[in-house]
Design a protein around this nucleic acid. Structure first.
Length: 324
DNA sequence: TTCCGACAGTGGGGTCGCAAT
DNA sequence: ATTGCGACCCCACTATCGGAA
């Protein structure tokens, strides 16, 4: 009766698709938008541990039967995903579950929005670690270890074929793909270049309608910019803030440009939430920039926005929310 | 010498729980 | 009862420094 050792999840570096000349060195997996979890199966029980080392087992009772679908003791690595109404992973659908402690609410959510554990790696089997095995051998071991179930799956990987996999991920409305070196070992706790996540980014032109002061290094200047886009009626609608992507030089430049544009009231047609408006310095909505982002949230905010730079060639009147 | 990898530090959208008001 | 705040999830990015290449 061995005791499974703790593992820390290996993470991927963000980057471009490997060049065609190196394509066949990688296995490609779909990237699922959910929460990362290691699954410790031992003594007929499953224990789920978050990236931060917290035991999150109680939040996902529908995954419990996985313990019976695993041959012997094992440590699995995968993503817990909630599928939205249109059949693709929805982080928003998962969020109420992630922090929930109330057993009654958890049971209710498990009925209405059951999750799926998408397993893509195995770190331990029986009383032996598997992390030194190359990726392809771990994947083989994974297939031999788990039998199919309703609420979990071992999605396939594609050896080579990165460009096609990336296109497929777009058609399926997924975040992108993860390219993993076929010969690489599992490196616990490391953000290794052997795993590269390749994401679909969108860009959006935005109007700057204000800014908020920063803290620490940025205490004397801009911390983030308040952004807006025009709706079909031409009204400037609040779209959230962006606080990353600029160099210190860019921040200083923006500060100088925004200073003469100061005004007393919000330029947005809709109401900016009070937490966001607190400490805001409003400006005339004339400066246009571009951000890169992951998706629009249900509240019309940009998720994971990063600043790309000013767009002096664009007029603030023409900045509309683009489809996507 | 230059480059890479790891870290610290800044910022974002969200949710929940709890303490302060 | 409401509000504020920290702890968690997801994350992008810049600046820095020491060691590898």
């Amino acid at each position: 009766m061995g005791h499974l050792p703790p593992y820390a999840p290996m993470t991927a570096r963000l980057g471009p698709l490997p060049p065609r000349s190196r394509d066949e060195l990688y296995g490609y997996e779909m990237k699922w938008d959910g929460v990362r979890a290691l699954g410790y199966v031992e003594g007929g029980r499953l224990r789920l541990v978050s990236r931060n080392g917290l035991d999150v087992t109680v939040a996902y009772p529908e995954l419990g039967p996985l313990a019976d679908a695993v041959a012997g003791a094992a440590v699995l690595d995968g993503e817990i995903v909630a599928f939205g109404p249109r059949g693709h992973p929805s982080f928003a659908a998962l969020q109420p579950r992630m922090h929930q402690r109330d057993p009654a609410k958890i049971r209710m959510l498990a009925r209405t929005t059951p999750v799926t554990y998408l397993i893509f790696d195995i770190l331990h089997r029986g009383d032996a670690t598997a992390i030194r095995l190359p990726y392809v051998e771990r994947r083989d071991l994974l297939d031999r270890t788990i039998s199919a179930g309703e609420r979990w799956d071992v999605p396939p990987y594609s050896p080579g074929g990165g460009a096609a996999a990336f296109r497929t991920s777009h058609e399926l409305r997924l975040e992108g793909v993860v390219a993993k070196r076929l010969t690489s070992a599992y490196q616990p706790g490391r953000r290794s270049g052997d795993w590269v996540k390749v994401k679909h980014f969108r860009t959006q032109e935005v109007v700057v309608g204000g800014w908020k002061p920063g803290e620490g290094r940025r205490a004397r200047g801009i911390g983030s910019l308040l952004l807006g886009v025009r709706d079909p009626a031409g009204r400037l609608v609040y779209a959230g803030h962006v606080g990353t992507g600029f160099t210190e030089a860019a921040l200083a430049d923006l500060g100088a440009r925004l200073a003469p544009l100061a005004r007393a009231t919000s330029p947005f047609a809709d109401e900016v939430p009070r937490e966001h408006a607190r400490h805001a310095h409003w400006t005339e909505p004339v400066l246009v920039g571009e951000v890169r982002y992951a998706e629009w949230t249900g509240d019309g905010r940009l998720r994971h926005p990063s600043w790309r730079g000013l767009r002096p060639d664009r007029r603030a009147e023409d900045v509309v929310r683009e489809p996507g």
